[in-house]
């Protein structure tokens, strides 16, 4: 007996090309991200992984091809509404506390109070969330940033090097959060260099081509 899942949104990508600096940097990306699925994005630095993720998330233009949500929606605005993107930069303001950062994001995402508590719980932020964010370690800031995933309550997560700068215990926690998200029907795309493991994840490999 399985309960109806919370999320049922997927992403279908067909022959997408993206540009950086006015030049096509990656082309021919075609894949499906079904509800509950996980997809690694691997490839050398500068091969266009970040640009691809940002374009899919609706934060940068897609040059050619199409990326549409299943069951519906393909505009950048529709994708922004369904996808949360967590990039290299943490978006954390050092001058205020972690909690103030959380409160700002929670307002933008329209998250109720209990979801903020869930985010603190999920990434184990309680010990340092009231300290000024400027005093936190790199790993702690990363966890604070990742808690946006919970606050957003969106079905699709696009993560760019999420486990950079965090220790093994925190990485395990991230894996558990991702597993729980997939169990609810959410899907993730993770660009990563390190040996992060996700059960049943497929891998999208980006091949940089020298001329």
């Amino acid at each position: 007996m399985s309960e109806p899942k919370e999320f049922s949104t997927g992403l279908t990508v067909r022959d997408v090309a993206v540009a950086r600096g006015g030049r096509t940097i990656l082309e021919g990306a075609s894949f499906d991200l079904a509800p509950g699925a996980a997809l690694f994005v691997k490839g050398a630095n500068g091969s266009g992984k970040t640009t691809l993720l940002r374009a899919l998330a609706g934060l940068a233009p897609i040059e050619t091809g199409e990326a549409h949500l299943t069951p519906e929606g393909s505009s950048p605005a529709a994708r922004r509404a369904a996808i949360v993107y967590c990039g290299h930069a943490n978006a954390v303001k050092a001058a205020v506390s972690g909690r103030a950062n959380l409160a700002f994001w929670a307002t933008l995402y329209g998250a109720p109070k209990d979801r903020t508590e869930a985010a603190i719980e999920a990434f184990d932020l309680a010990a340092f969330v009231d300290a000024p964010a400027g005093a936190l370690s790199q790993g702690q800031r990363r966890r604070l940033a990742l808690s946006r995933l919970i606050l957003s309550a969106k079905p699709l997560w696009l993560l760019d090097e999420p486990s950079a700068a965090i220790d093994a215990a925190s990485a395990a926690r991230l894996s558990a959060v991702i597993a729980a998200h997939r169990a609810r029907g959410g899907a993730v795309m993770v660009a990563t260099h390190d040996g992060m493991e996700i059960d049943g994840a497929r891998t999208l490999t980006v091949h940089a081509r020298a001329a």
């Binding site: 090309a17 030049r23 096509t24 940097i25 990656l26 082309e27 021919g28 990306a29 075609s30 894949f31 997809l39 490839g43 091969s47 266009g48 691809l52 497929r202 891998t203 999208l204 490999t205 980006v206 091949h207 940089a208 081509r209 020298a210 001329a211």
Partner: peptide, 10 residues
């Protein structure tokens, strides 16, 4: 100089 990257999924 350089060509665009290509992609495949396993």
């Amino acid at each position: 100089g350089r060509k665009a990257s290509t992609v495949n999924v396993e």
